[in-house]
Amino acid sequence: MEITYRSLITLIHGMLFGAFFLMAISGLLVELFRSTFSEPSPVSSKAQLLERLYLFCTVALGWAAVLTGAYLIYPWYRAVPPAGVMDLAPFPRYLLKSSPATSGWHDLGMEWKEHIAWIAPMAMTMVAWVLTKYRATMREYPQVRSVVLTFALAAFAAAGVAGFFGAMLNKYAPVNGGATIHLVGKTHE
């Protein structure tokens, strides 16, 4: 069983950073909704520390996802094939645009994903900061709570769009290439 270097990085970007970021936001959304309808209860300092760690990891996952996506994977995706090259498989953007049946995945999918994805970590950084700073007094500021919830929902939507199109783009034109990494079993002769 083998994997190419570019596939591995794409996997880390999508399945580790992106997917865990989405899961972490969904967990935070559940907690935000729950706390809206329940009375606050005393929280130990250890639990507060865990909450902060959770928020920090959520934000870090978001930034890791967009940074690896834009600065590692995107250059591989948009690489220009040399003149005369017929096999477009190593050039995903050009492979997608070579057929009307797949060009939409680039024109809508990648064009949307590459920008909207960045809204998610920006919004979640603000959400995490406000939740940390106003943790004890959030109930006194219902407007702060509602806007934080809205931005968290927006971050979830933005990350969802990016995640969906990332998965679909990698299905129709996978980013591949680079050194082959042997995982388990016999190597390919």
């Binding site: 920006m122 919004a123 700073k133 106003y134």
Partner: peptide
């Protein structure tokens, strides 16, 4: 926490919205 003004939260929220629009 009772004496914490809402200004810092407002600054974070407005900047986040403006950052999204700038993008």
């Amino acid at each position: 926490g009772e004496h914490l003004p809402n200004g810092p939260a407002a600054a974070a929220v407005l900047a986040s919205g403006a950052g999204s629009a700038a993008l």
